[in-house]
Design a protein around this nucleic acid. Structure first.
Lengths: 244, 244
DNA sequence: AACTTGCGTTCGGATAACGAACACATGTAT
DNA sequence: ATACATGTGTTCGTTATCCGAACGCAAGTT
């Protein structure tokens, strides 16, 4: 069913940089012909997922129902909820749950603290695996073949001066994460952003997700922060893993 | 594009009660033929939105990306975020933002407190308009014709003994909400659940959403709770409205 | 004013979706 | 044990849908 795949691609073409699209915009973003994009957009309007004002198409709240399907149907995000809340309270920092999705880490649940400077990551956000604490953890869960393939495949572009762009160094970092059971990202994704991540492994020992904490680097001492967070994070991650 | 509409219906067939579906399940839930449902499911697997284990289909994290489209592209949920966080901190209660979607109120953003008994509503959850505080508020935003049509159209089924099932009584309640600017739901949706909601109106004065607070009825005195919350909720709702 | 560029829309032809019919497994009554 | 009933997933020829070249239109450019 080609129409379905194309329609979903069109829907995913909307995002932070492209909150409203014309027919031609959508065609360009998806690689479809204008005619095909038009058919998709029209259908999505008819189905209630998009609004149209004679010029631009914009997503309607209805798409939220689509996203909720995962949180409602899959155990992981449901079971993770209370742990994220508890961690947020314990650490007084924003906490996230991410899984590997393609070559990115995808945030599927989050519990935020109220801060003036809050990180821009939200549920649905994606980060490169090679440039985030959560990504290091998820990569550490791959077997050697899969990791080799990833390192071969992916093109690493620097997000900040500290971003790891060398496959060899990334491999070292991942080895370190495997050993220590915690990943640290100190301004490797974004200047001023510090993050800590731990693995969530299911009862079979397979990596299924990563719990992470992020905070403004200026606000904290790295070693202190790590000592304060790592243990309780690992406790919750392990407990969550046992529930899966 | 019939295929697209059908595929989205199939995807929405997954939910809390139906976390995994066979081909026949999906066909039943959507009214499609088994063959058509199969084609949709196969395509959704190919596109990465569903996983298939030779028997059951389940949603993958990828669908989260679809839902995020709304939060990423539309101003309302983005601007609401900080207000919800601030309200949560101020009231120490879970706070939600809901909009009208068809004949239901749809939760599009939420900020939760860590509690042993936390309400089951999450982002993406839907409640009947006639049985929730947030619903009363949203209905109060309709003009007379639209409200008449709604009362005519909808079939009100009691969620609890206190649920309003009489159109006349609902109309009274809505009039009360219009006058007071706050809606109260005391165990009308769920036994033991108390909720308070205020309207969010854009700069033109049109109702666009509702901010609500819910808590276990046992924990609080209704009048106290209302006095404590209503003012600060209205402040944030008004401020949010002005930003739209 | 003539041309270029980009837009949204149309329409006959190619192609993909439809559902009746099929094959298979499982449970149930004879 | 056998035959039946019911549910499942899959196939294949026909039909209806989706495709994209071609079109008309508006706005900027030469």
């Amino acid at each position: 069913m080609a129409g379905l795949a194309k329609g979903l691609a069109v829907l995913e073409a909307f995002g932070p940089e492209t909150p409203r699209l014309t027919i031609s915009d959508a065609a360009r973003a998806t690689g479809l012909s204008r005619a095909a994009a038009r058919r998709c957009l029209m259908t999505l309007v008819e189905a209630g997922y998009l609004a149209f004002d004679e010029k631009f198409f914009t997503p309607t709240p209805r798409v939220v129902r689509l996203g909720a399907v995962y949180a409602e149907a899959v155990p992981l995000p449901q079971l993770a909820g209370p742990h994220l809340l508890a961690l947020r309270e314990a650490l007084d920092e924003s906490v996230s749950l991410a899984v590997m999705e393609g070559d990115e880490s995808l945030f599927v649940a989050r519990s935020e603290v109220s801060r003036v400077f809050s990180a821009g990551v939200r549920v649905g956000a994606r980060l490169p695996l090679y440039a985030s604490a959560t990504g290091y953890v998820l990569l550490a869960g791959l077997d050697e073949n899969a990791l080799d393939a990833y390192l071969e495949r992916v093109e690493m572009v620097a997000c900040t001066p500290r971003t790891i762009v060398d496959p060899g160094r990334l491999r070292e970092r991942i080895a370190q994460v495997r050993e220590e059971g915690v990943a640290v990202s100190d301004e490797e994704l974004e200047v001023g952003l510090f993050a800590l991540a731990v693995p969530v492994r299911d009862s079979r020992g397979d990596m299924v997700a990563s719990i992470s904490v992020s905070a403004a680097a200026a606000r904290l001492d790295v070693a202190d922060f790590r000592d304060r967070c790592a243990r309780v994070m690992r406790q919750h991650a392990d407990q969550l893993g046992r529930q899966l």
